[in-house]
């Protein structure tokens, strides 16, 4: 079953009061997210990720196109009791304490007091906020607010969560905890839809990704399909490299770096290095290491976005 589907979703924002102008923030977006997967929406600043989430949450209304969540239109009241949402910058009532905030949202979900209490305590523990639970939110650091924000997302035990930059403001430990939390959610059958800039995290977590640029979808699919596995470059580290060999390397490699006595050479393909190998041995150089490099999401992302920018 598709848990999220958008068809031709488009959003124009109005600017100015006197001289009206419009800017397209999202342009005919078609997306589908399947039950139980971790879906990552990535794209440079201003690409339209947050706009997509706000449209899905019914906070802003589409200029054209439509979206469904769990097979229902986004404005169906039934939808909200089954989803969790972490806004980009979590703004909460800052006069409430962390614990009060969770209870407050629990009330809005219509949870009974014992259930609220049990869930709030479990979640405070899970996000590592038990100790600061009785301080008002206005005294929280950014990362602490983010943690409470994540806890409130899960108060109703949602089937589907939307996280807008869940890692922002978290320290390395927090990021790792977040990663394992997302995995844990997936194991318990929750579908996770998130936006992020931190591509290694996306790569480590997501089953599928969609790349957005200037409001347009430039690519979407399984990570294994998007990242071209046939392009396998190798990174080689050499020692005692003579001048003529260095020149030969520069000619057939994509990147050459000298670090002290060592030379780091990147070849687009393993075969390029194979051809150079006899010259290396002849020149009296030593091979320290040969590492195959799989294409990273980050490189792919940068390349795709640049290409989209050119055309």
């Amino acid at each position: 079953m598709l848990v999220v589907e958008t068809v031709g979703l488009t959003k124009d924002y109005d600017y100015g009061h006197i001289k009206r102008s419009r800017r397209r923030a999202l342009d005919h977006l078609d997306l589908s997210v399947e039950q139980g997967e971790i879906f990552g929406l990535i794209g440079p600043n201003g690409a339209g990720k947050t706009t997509t989430l706000k449209l899905l949450m019914g906070l802003v209304f589409p200029t054209s196109g439509s979206a469904t969540i769990l097979g229902l239109p986004v404005d169906d009241p039934e939808v909200k009791s089954q989803i969790g949402y972490l806004p980009e910058q979590p703004y909460f009532y800052d006069y409430l304490t962390g614990r009060e905030l969770l209870h407050h949202f629990g009330e809005l979900f219509g949870l009974s007091k014992p259930v609220r209490k049990q869930r709030a305590e479990a979640l405070l523990e899970k996000v590592g906020m038990s100790e600061a639970a009785d301080e008002p939110l206005r005294k929280y650091s950014k990362g602490m607010t983010q943690r409470i924000g994540i806890a409130q997302t899960l108060m109703n035990e949602p089937k589907l969560v939307f996280l807008d930059e869940p890692m922002s403001g978290l320290d390395p430990v927090g990021r790792r905890e977040m990663t394992s939390l997302v995995r844990e959610l997936q194991r318990s059958g929750v579908t996770v839809f998130f936006c992020s800039h931190i591509l290694p995290d996306v790569e480590a977590l997501c089953d599928r990704v969609a790349i957005l640029n200037q409001g347009k979808l430039i690519e979407s699919g399984r990570l294994s399909e998007i990242l071209d596995v046939s392009i396998r470059s190798v990174s080689v580290v050499l020692e005692d490299v003579g001048e003529s060999l260095e020149r030969a390397c520069t000619e057939c490699a994509i990147d050459v770096h000298r670090v002290g006595a060592r030379l780091e050479v990147s070849f687009a393909e393993g075969a390029d290095f194979d051809r150079l190998l006899p010259a290396v041995i002849e020149g009296g150089a030593r091979v320290v290491s040969v590492t195959p490099v799989k294409q990273r999401l980050e490189e792919h992302f940068v390349r795709e976005v640049e290409r989209a920018g050119e055309s």
């Binding site: 019914g58 009791s81 703004y91 909460f92 809005l108 979900f109």
Partner: peptide
């Protein structure tokens, strides 16, 4: 203005 509304209106509150 403070956007505290975001987290309220995405709960089952019309």
């Amino acid at each position: 203005d403070k956007r505290t509304l975001y987290s309220v209106l995405t709960k089952p509150v019309s």
